[in-house]
Simulated scan of single mutants.
Amino acid sequence: MYDVSIIVPIYNTEKYIEKCLVSLFEQDYKNIEYVFINDETMDNSMQILSNVLKRYPDRKEDVKIINNEKNYGSSMSRKIGIEASTGLYTIQIDSDDWCELDMISSLYNKAVSENADIVCCDFFENCMLKKVYVKEDYDIILEKDSIINSFFLGEIHPSLCNKLVKRNLYNSLDFPKGSFGEDLYISLQLFYFSDKISYLNSAFLHYNRVNLSSVTSRKNNINDIKEIFLKVKNFLESKEIYDKFKDAFHSKIFIMTITNYNGNFSKTINSISEDLNKLKYIYIAKVGFMKKIAFTIAFFGFDGLYFSIKRGWMGVKKGIKI
Rank of each mutant, 00 (worst) to 15 (best):
D3Y: 01
P9V: 11
K15Y: 11
Y16L: 03
C20Q: 04
C20G: 09
E26V: 04
K30P: 05
N31C: 14
M42F: 09
I48C: 03
I48F: 01
I66G: 02
K79A: 09
G81Q: 02
A84L: 05
I91C: 06
I93R: 08
I93C: 05
D94C: 00
D97G: 01
W98H: 10
S106R: 05
L107M: 08
A111W: 01
V112L: 11
S113P: 04
E114S: 03
N115S: 05
C120A: 14
D122H: 07
F124T: 01
K130A: 03
V134H: 07
Y138M: 11
I140A: 03
F152N: 03
E155H: 15
I156E: 00
N162L: 12
Y170C: 09
Y170T: 12
S172A: 13
D174Y: 09
D174L: 14
P176R: 06
P176K: 06
E182Y: 11
L184P: 03
K196H: 12
N201H: 06
R209G: 01
R218D: 15
N220P: 04
I225H: 04
I225A: 08
V232E: 13
K233Y: 14
K239I: 08
E240K: 15
E240S: 15
K246I: 02
H250V: 03
S251H: 08
I253V: 14
F254M: 04
N262A: 15
G263K: 14
G263Q: 10
S273P: 01
A285N: 07
K286V: 09
F300I: 13
F300R: 03
F302N: 15
D303I: 06
K318T: 15
G319F: 15
